[in-house]
Design a binder for these strands. Structure first.
Length: 509
RNA sequence: GCUGGUAUGGUGUAGUUAGGCCCAUCAUGAAGCCCUCUCGAGGCUUCGACCCGGGUUCAAAUCCCGGUACUAGCACCA
């Protein structure tokens, strides 16, 4: 047998590659330099961590094949998911942040209305679509019963006349009185595909183009036309849009277009965040449950950027998760672990004492004139921090949590101390036991008063946004610097409070 | 109800198209140890999975049949 194979089909004897696949799987029918992808959000709010999957997977594939990525704003709903004019800029900004470059093309569907209406006119005149005057409820009955409504048999002339009436700003149909449907067949075995609606009337003005248009395409039609117009080769979308693919495929077949390759992913939830509903967040913000789109508790990209998440870590996160159609729920710790790896090496160490307790420490028995601490313990080349010590006695601040446990403590990089917990008129007092590191006295972080500035740290505790007051080690790092607070975790320097206190936002442990 | 989709350790994921190198990969997590003057980082060790039941085969995570579970669409939202 083996000999036969050796002669006839030597390939069959070759061991298959069994190495772990790295990165994204290959795309079907993808030619180097010819791949065109698109990311198509609704600008009804800023991008969320969930959207970033679309940005990253699409741009990563574009990178793999030297292709193009289009950023397309699907803003054709003026009423239910109304566009927020500010979101266009936010989204473009976050797109660039995540991919490191501008999209190859930016399209706003609302600025392409003439194209969609022209195609609609054409498809009606070719008999592929018809105007339907049934109400949504009536048509639902027809759909369930697999029955054709009377509108379906109207002549093309009638349909074109009704189409003109839909678009008539003065005497036209009102919202809900007419839609354009694609003639797919009312006995299609999949009910979702039966004569699906392509355009409807909206009289709510659009934030970008006002009341210039009356008939607006629905997603399935707008997207179908635009993907064709832009010669998109590969669509990557949620599996909730599988029937969209099938609807659009029928239209493409009717008009002789070739449908792009399509891939799907499942729904993602993050344990700590739950889902990523922009509409839900918007109403929560309006009700005052959050301070705004960049509230650090929210999974929006503006909020995550504000906290100091790294774009590269988010990229790796999504690429590692890959493109499966499974619905998954991922703990935030997976992303945070990647993020720590991304930011740790550049994060200078600083001391932040929350709810500080001040102690008069007698240091008259020691000869040190300063305490020296590394800026980063793994990178001695980054230099050291030096805290000068005054002679005789100094005021040191420790977290009240540390003060309350009455054991001996070691001030990190300095000395073991003993605190007298009986308060005197002049406050608390303590003294140095030794400066050498002997045994394993629990280490706490601390701050001498001459190195401390008032600060607040914004962080989430049990769902509540807490502004923790404390003292931050004096430093001259600029705003935007990601630091690591000793024994607490990563945070970012954001700015100053009105009272002059330095403001920090917690990133994660 | 109709039409689809998905099932690999606690959580994700590779492997499934072309059955054997898979007593199953990598990451994350948990536990323990080492290192470290941070509850950080790093190192080492350990834990833990092929939805179920049949069948085909010398050989099945992979093929066939039958179940089960979960999930999506059936919007004049995207």
């Amino acid at each position: 047998m083996r000999r036969i194979l050796e002669n006839e089909a030597p390939d069959a004897l070759e061991k298959r590659e069994r190495e772990r696949r790295e990165g994204l799987p290959e795309l079907a029918n993808a030619n180097e330099g010819e791949v065109v992808l698109r990311f198509a959000p609704n600008p009804n709010g800023p991008l969320t961590l969930g959207h970033s999957r679309g940005v990253i997977i699409n741009s990563e594939y574009a990178n793999m094949y030297s292709g193009k990525t289009i950023l397309r704003f699907d803003d054709t709903d003026t009423k239910i998911k109304r566009p927020d004019e500010r979101a266009y800029g936010w989204i473009l900004d976050d797109f660039i942040w995540l991919t490191g470059k501008e999209p190859d093309l930016v399209i706003e569907a609302s600025s392409r209305m003439d194209v969609y209406l022209e195609y609609s006119n054409q498809f009606i005149s070719e008999g592929h679509m018809y105007v339907c005057n049934c109400t949504a409820d009536e048509f639902r009955e027809y759909r369930i019963a697999k029955l054709e409504c009377s509108c379906r048999s109207n002549s093309i002339e009638d349909n074109l006349s009704k189409w003109r009436q839909m678009n008539d700003n003065i005497q036209g149909y009102n919202e809900g009185e007419a839609v354009v449907r694609v003639k797919t067949g009312m006995n299609h075995k999949n009910p979702a595909l039966r004569d699906w609606p392509a355009l409807r009337i909206q009289t709510t003005p659009h934030p970008k183009v006002g009341d210039k248009y009356r008939v607006w395409p629905l997603l399935d039609f707008q997207s179908a036309v635009e993907d064709y117009e832009q010669r998109v080769t590969h669509i990557i979308r949620g599996k909730d849009l599988m029937d969209s693919t099938r609807k659009q495929q029928i239209l493409y077949d009717k008009v002789g277009w070739k449908y792009p390759e399509t891939l799907y992913w499942g729904r993602v939830k993050i344990h700590e965040f739950g889902g990523f509903s922009t509409s839900q967040m918007k109403s929560d913000i309006n009700e005052g449950n959050y301070t705004g789109w960049n509230d650090p508790r929210l999974p929006t990209l503006p909020a995550m950027r504000r906290r100091g998440y790294d774009a590269g870590a988010i990229r790796k996160f999504w690429i590692d998760l890959g493109l499966t159609q499974k619905d998954i729920s991922v703990p935030l710790s997976t992303l945070n672990s990647l993020n720590s790896k991304a930011v740790d090496a550049d994060a200078p160490r600083l001391s932040f004492v929350r709810n500080p307790c001040s102690i008069n420490l007698d240091i008259s028995k020691i000869e040190l004139t300063k305490v020296t601490l590394p800026i980063h313990p793994e990178h001695p080349d980054k230099g050291v921090r030096e805290w000068p010590l005054e002679e005789g006695s100094i005021k040191v601040n420790i977290a009240s949590d540390d003060f309350n446990s009455h054991e001996a403590r070691r001030l990190k990089d300095f000395a073991d101390i003993e605190i007298n917990h009986e308060k005197t008129g002049d406050g608390w007092f303590g003294e140095v036991i030794r400066t050498e590191r002997l045994g394993n006295t629990p280490i706490i972080h601390w701050l001498p008063s001459n190195m401390a500035q008032p600060a607040v740290l914004l962080l989430e505790e049990e769902g509540i946004l807490v502004t923790a007051e404390g003292l931050l080690e004096i430093n001259d790092y600029p705003n935007g610097t990601i630091i690591q607070l000793e024994r607490m975790g990563f945070a970012i320097l954001e700015g100053f409070e009105d009272n002059g206190a330095r403001r920090l936002v917690r990133l994660h442990a």
